[in-house]
Design a protein around this nucleic acid. Structure first.
Lengths: 222, 222
DNA sequence: ACCTGAACACCGTTCAAGT
DNA sequence: ACCTGAACACCGTTCAAGT
């Protein structure tokens, strides 16, 4: 897909807008108002063109979003200094991906990639797989381990950002409180016990704890 | 939200359509053609009414989707026989939720609930939290543990169903192959090594393995 | 109380034509 | 080769009116 515009051989009408300009403008719109604001029509207006001109540079909206994600990853994923110990390397690499995603809430709508989100993220995947191998897992198990870490990471992001969106609208929060207040203690004793602590517990950031537990578990399995 | 229509005190025009009818019809549309097919206008047409009549029974489309999810959960979540051992209970309860979600691909779009997807799922949450407590975790840690399991489960569903959607459109698959074929072996040695096995490894269902690793890790942490 | 019709303010995408 | 205009086939939701 990132088909770098080759040197123009055959000449025709000179282009007025470029893929880069489209992506940069799309990025601005999304940063300012969320993905919901990004429509082909608005984008066209902002680059000073017509909706149909965009389709000359981008297959469809779906492709535009993937391009936007690649662009974001390429610009913001900075490779951290990694610790020597392989287990720590896994945690640091996964946390770096997690932080990049968490800083970018619109990503969820595009987080439709199945395992690699962007070629810029491959280095991080390499570190995680290599860390797992370094801890003694065979390559196949290491790849599966990476996937488990990715599920956990993607899940945390999706659940957290959608929960945050819900919080803006406080009807739902009230509804949740209601549910927890009306629990039947004989059927759901633990939830009843935790009911008044549920909200603060849920607000805590426990990504790292869960990640470490998962990594421990992956490494400990027979 | 599930505000059971109270016995009508004040009489006016008798209702022609009910919330139940709306939900049942919405369910049919979604089952037949996916969530993408569910629009207020189409739904109105199928219940033999006008778009605006729906807004008398449902606040907006968002509420309709939550209602649909509740309905689905209430109809399909069957409580399994649980093993006595608490660790096994956790695994069985989580797997049951996972299976229900996996059988229902449209869920992802609605999987916007932050931790409980529906009141019908509370019993499963109870079992997981109680299982973690039964294994010796304090209640707070058990709640966090449940959340980690939920992240992992939701992530697996989101990643898997979107990957499946992508597969229909095989351009992306080709793109992924391309990326793996062009890896720089000196920079990304492990990915290069795993490249030709990546697709089959990724196709394997490893939910249960990852879940067990996660549970082990949660229980082992100091 | 419940429903209707018409309208508002949008979408993504295709097609045929222009430069 | 690149861009435009007009059109197609839709959306969710509001408002004012009817029964």
């Amino acid at each position: 897909m990132p088909q770098p515009s080759a040197p123009r051989k055959t000449l025709g009408r000179p282009p007025r807008i470029s893929r880069e300009e489209i992506i940069a403008t799309a990025r601005r719109i999304v940063d300012e108002g969320g993905v919901g604001r990004l429509t082909m029509r608005r984008l066209a207006a902002e680059v000073g063109s017509t909706p149909m001109a965009l389709y000359h540079h981008v297959r469809d909206k779906e492709e535009l979003l993937v391009l936007l994600l690649d662009d974001y990853a390429a610009r913001t994923l900075r490779r951290p200094r990694l610790p020597d110990h392989p287990r720590e390397r896994i945690v640091v690499a996964a946390t770096a991906i997690h932080e990049a995603l968490a800083a970018c809430p619109w990503i969820v709508e595009v987080l439709t990639a199945d395992d690699l989100l962007s070629t810029s993220a491959l280095w991080f995947v390499e570190q995680i797989v290599d860390g797992l191998v370094g801890c003694g897992l065979p390559l196949d198990r290491a790849v599966h381990g990476y996937r488990a870490i990715w599920y956990y990471t993607a899940g945390e992001i999706v659940v957290r950002t959608t929960a945050a969106r819900r919080r803006a609208d406080d009807d739902r929060a009230t509804y949740r409180e209601q549910v927890f207040a009306d629990l039947d203690p004989s059927e759901l004793p633990r939830l009843t016990q935790a009911a008044d602590r549920w909200a603060p517990l849920t607000a805590e950031d426990t990504y790292r704890d869960g990640l470490q537990a998962l990594v421990d578990g992956l490494l400990a399995r027979r």
